[in-house]
């Protein structure tokens, strides 16, 4: 009985969150005339990649109007590429900065580490909007508006404190004896970090990188303020403004589904990694 209720609950929650995505997928595979059929079609009667190809900048023959339709006059493909580039740069730079920072904060206690960690966490308790205007002014002054590297910098400002915090937590539970063993075995401090600590911490580091990738890819507000209407426009503001710019709901659905591919693939991979993190958890290893 209890199990049955649980299953009903799970089914409800899954349907609740999956139906909008299913509907977008459904519409994205239809020609324009079919979208508004009454009663609505649960499956496309003439499934086609017409919308996808037009979104990505190809001319497509439409058998129902007997015409070749031009690509949508809106930079969806460019926005997808922009988002991917920005998110990749954000995650790589995050790994490069947050790993040593998290290691230092997690491993060593100095006079100021309490203040530093408080600042790190404190910066995440502020609503992001509160730093939007100052960052906009900075962006204006240093010509960062409407550029790919500009939005990368802004995303880094948002994501770095959090990833540093996560990695700090990881490194503070990392058994220091492993590092000590490497030192005694003849490794210098740097060798011990490069050859023992980082390989052991790799799952956590990759997780932090993927997390920041997803954050940057999905981020809307800053992307909109800093890039909309420029060649650097990323996918989120593009999707949001399509309503006014295109008005063809089937094309919008196709663009939405296209934008989901990267985060879905990464999430699936990420999930696998989370399990791995648990498996090679050095703390559990050292003390079980």
């Amino acid at each position: 009985m209890k199990k049955a209720l649980l299953i009903i609950g799970i089914v409800f929650v899954v349907l609740w969150s999956i139906i909008p995505i299913y509907w977008a997928l459904n519409i994205s595979l239809m020609y324009h005339f079919e979208v508004y059929s009454v009663p609505a079609h649960l499956f496309p009667e003439h499934p086609t990649l017409y919308n996808y190809l037009r979104s990505l900048g190809f001319s497509v023959f439409n058998p129902f109007t007997n015409r070749v339709d031009p690509p949508v006059g809106y930079p969806i493909r460019e926005a997808l590429i922009n988002s991917f580039v920005v998110a990749s740069m954000v995650s790589l730079i995050t790994i490069a900065i947050a790993t040593p920072a998290g290691y230092a904060l997690g491993r060593y206690r100095t006079r100021h580490s309490g203040l530093l960690t408080a600042l790190l966490l404190g910066s995440r308790t502020l609503p992001p909007v509160s730093i939007l205007i100052p960052l906009y002014i900075i962006g204006l002054r240093y010509r960062l508006l409407g550029t790919t590297h500009g939005i990368t910098v802004m995303h880094l400002a948002l994501v770095l404190p959090l990833t540093t915090w996560i990695l700090m937590g990881f490194f503070s539970t990392f058994p220091s004896e492993i590092e000590k063993a490497a030192r005694v075995d003849g490794a210098t401090r740097l060798q011990a970090i490069v050859r023992v600590v980082i390989p052991t911490a790799l799952p956590a580091i990759v997780s932090a990188g993927l997390l920041s990738f997803l954050f940057s890819y999905n981020e809307y507000l800053f992307s909109w303020v800093f890039t909309s209407g420029t060649p650097a426009q990323t996918i989120q503001p593009t999707l949001a403004s399509m309503w006014f710019m295109i008005g063809e709901i089937n094309i919008m659905a196709a663009a939405t589904i296209l934008s989901l591919i990267v985060p879905v693939v990464i999430s699936l991979y990420f999930q696998k990694y989370i399990i791995q993190v648990r498996l090679v958890d050095p703390y559990a290893l050292a003390f079980e």
Binding site: P175, E177, I178, K180, A181, A182, R183, V184, D185, G186, A187, T188, R189, Q191, V196, P199, T200, L202, V280, P282, L285, A286, F287
Partner: peptide, 21 residues
Amino acid sequence: LPPEERNIAMVFQSYALYPTM
């Protein structure tokens, strides 16, 4: 003298084996 230059070996309570190797 840093530990790596002392030519000593140490065995830890937790063994401190390198988990990835």
